[in-house]
Amino acid sequence: METVIRFENIVKEYNMGKISVQALRGVTAEIQKGEFVAIMGPSGSGKSTLMHILGCLDTATTGSYWLEDQEISKMKKSKLSAIRNHKIGFVFQTFNLLPHLNIRRNVELPLMYSGMSAAKRKVLAEKVLADVGLADRLKHKPSELSGGQRQRVAIARALVNTPTILLADEPTGNLDTNSGNDILSIFSDLNRKGHTIIIVTHDSAVSERADRSIKIIDGLIVE
């Protein structure tokens, strides 16, 4: 098996005035290509911090992090945007779509920042939206869609740049059970097609779908 993610002794310290708080106190793990991993833990455990570091939105205070063959922890912050753009697809609890853009343009956003021409972007965005069952909603604004549909738009946006990993932060947290199950099924399907998926959650129904769970409590991996 090919290792996609490897991190060793990741420590994240936040300075809050005179005191500093350690959100992660030295965590180490590996994730293989094609795995479906749940990162579990109660709120405040450090699981979101870990996701931010894995997603290159934030950097570790100490420790090393490799994404494929690149050592992210040694990269300049200015390089991280390109990594986020090409290798990572995010799905958030609150969808995080841009309200004034229609959903096709929302999905095009990562492609715009990768410099793709408008014509190509359109074709690609429409294809990915069709894959998540929204081919007939292209011109709709996010506010005109249900929560489940919005999350599908977010998944389409995360997939459109064919990322190495798909990172989802409580993707069902704002959905009713049925819509939540739909979304989880999409993740399972994507995983079967070979996508590496990491879901951060505190919901055991979600983690049951995963190949394995990484449990974090108080900034440390417990199992």
Binding site: S81, A82, R84, H86, N96, L98, L109, P110, Y113
Partner: peptide
Amino acid sequence: TREIGIRLAVGARRFD
């Protein structure tokens, strides 16, 4: 602010 966060998350550079 949030929109800026979203743009950064999908790969916008600070310069963009």
